[in-house]
């Protein structure tokens, strides 16, 4: 029972089983994205829920992050040449990293949790079984629309976050640090390349996929009443957050090497 090898063996087996289940689940979900019939009505609903209703949270996060970034660079860096350095670092930092990652984490908390709770409740009250008996594939009806909606809307959210983040930096720079607004914006535009923005958007599409996948996977596999649904919700948020950070590292090293 307490044999260390037995414990390690159990953990390894459980992890492998989980990875196997997740791969199968991902395959089922993705294959239903591409196979007809398509449920556009459900997709629209999910885009509203995942994208539109996340706007306030993401906008606030981006605004304050841009602002605080400007302050830190100004106080921490040399005051020499600060006017161009603050603008460029805020722009690069937000579009390349902080926009996608922070928006991803906020959406993981908001949307990942709500997907897991909703599907988890449907699982434990047999609603997912009921779908099957009504000739409706639950992957098609529940998983596919959420995956697609998240992959489409999270990049849009991040694009908006990029703009608002830069505006946050601009507000702090012009109101607190007495920079010239026109010069600040000119510096931002001069230094920012399209690649900086697109790399962030590509990352965020992947983050969207991770968020929806984790929410659906943990919701689908929840067991036993309210407690099980609670556990699924927590797991969905925690695993999505960790995977977002890990995927960010991997993608950054791939994108900026080339």
């Amino acid at each position: 029972m307490w044999n260390p090898f037995a414990i390690i063996g159990r953990v390894v087996l459980a992890t492998l089983e989980e990875i196997g289940q997740l791969s199968l689940f991902t395959w089922n979900g993705v294959s239903h994205v591409v196979r007809p019939p398509y449920f556009f009505r459900l997709l629209g609903q999910q885009m509203m829920r995942i994208g539109y209703f996340s706007l306030p949270v993401v906008a606030m996060t981006a605004f304050f992050t841009g602002g605080v970034l400007a302050l830190q660079i100004y106080y921490g860096g040399s005051q020499y040449n600060s006017e161009s350095i603050v603008a460029t670092i805020v722009a690069l930092g937000i579009t390349r990293e902080l926009g996608p990652v922070l928006a991803g984490l906020m959406v993981a908390g908001r949307v990942g949790a709500s997907i897991a709770a909703e599907l988890g409740t449907m699982r434990v009250t047999e609603q997912i079984d009921a779908l099957t008996t009504l000739s409706t594939n639950p992957y098609k009806y529940l998983v596919a629309p959420r995956l697609v909606a998240a992959v489409i809307t999270v990049p849009i959210l991040v694009l908006i976050a990029d703009i608002i983040g830069v505006m946050g930096g601009y507000m702090v720079a012009t109101k607190n640090l007495d920079f010239n607004g026109g010069v600040y914006l000119a510096n931002t535009i001069d230094f920012l390349k399209t690649d900086d923005v697109t790399s962030g958007l590509i990352k965020s599409a992947v983050f969207g996929f991770i968020i929806a996948l984790m929410g659906c996977f943990h919701g689908f596999n929840s067991k036993g009443g309210a407690q099980g649904v609670g556990r699924a919700t927590t797991n969905a948020v925690v695993t999505a957050s960790i995977l977002i950070l890990a995927a960010d590292y991997v993608m950054t090293s791939l994108i900026f090497k080339s």
Binding site: E118, T121, M122, T125, E126, Q127, D129, A130, T132, T133, S135, N137
Partner: peptide, 20 residues
């Protein structure tokens, strides 16, 4: 399997109504 399931109707013990 979808075609097979189309033959069935099921009343679940707990109802299993879609609450949304």
């Amino acid at each position: 399997r979808d075609a097979y399931l189309a033959k069935f109707g099921m009343l679940f013990q707990g109802g299993a109504l879609f609450d949304s």
